[in-house]
């Protein structure tokens, strides 16, 4: 891969393969991994022996950093963010970090203000408000 050297998430240079791939927010990963863990639990008494260290660490991590616990809220977050012409990667960074102000959002995801994109501060502000609302009513 020739692009490896200049990889930079702030400019969305993450390689074609990952740019097109489906990104997952921490809360979505949490739902997937917990489901899988439950399945393993039914098959054996001690699922901890079955799973890799990577799995266990990831599960702990996403449980700790999930902004939304309720599966419906998780779905709603994705739906609302997908109205704003974001790439998958930007969508998930916003969903994970839940910035509160426009400046914070731009600092977290500089590419939303990159040239050629349609976002003005007002649109970003509305998006953040929508996100905060879901959290409030979860």
């Amino acid at each position: 891969m020739s692009g490896e050297e200049e990889e930079n998430a702030a400019e969305l240079k993450i390689g074609d393969e990952f740019l097109k791939a489906k990104c997952l927010m921490n809360c979505e990963v949490s739902l997937i991994l917990e489901h899988k863990f439950e399945q393993l639990q039914q098959m054996s008494d001690d699922p901890r022996n079955q799973v890799s260290q990577v799995f266990e660490k990831s599960l702990q991590y996403v449980k700790r950093f999930s902004r939304y616990k309720n599966p419906d809220a998780v779905k709603q977050v994705r739906e609302i963010l997908s109205r704003y012409q974001l790439t998958e990667f930007e969508l998930c960074v916003l969903g994970n970090l839940c910035p509160e102000t426009v400046e914070e959002a731009i600092a977290m995801v500089p590419s939303i203000k990159a040239k050629g994109r349609v976002h003005d501060d007002e649109a970003i502000d509305k998006m953040l408000n929508d996100l905060a609302l879901i959290k409030k009513f979860e």
Partner: peptide, 24 residues
């Protein structure tokens, strides 16, 4: 990814800096 912002848990602190873990 380089340039990515994420949250992590601090695992060790020393005078050189600190280590944190984000999942694996």
């Amino acid at each position: 990814f380089k340039g990515e912002i994420l949250e992590a848990v601090v695992t060790m602190v020393n005078k050189m800096g600190f280590f944190a873990e984000a999942g694996p």
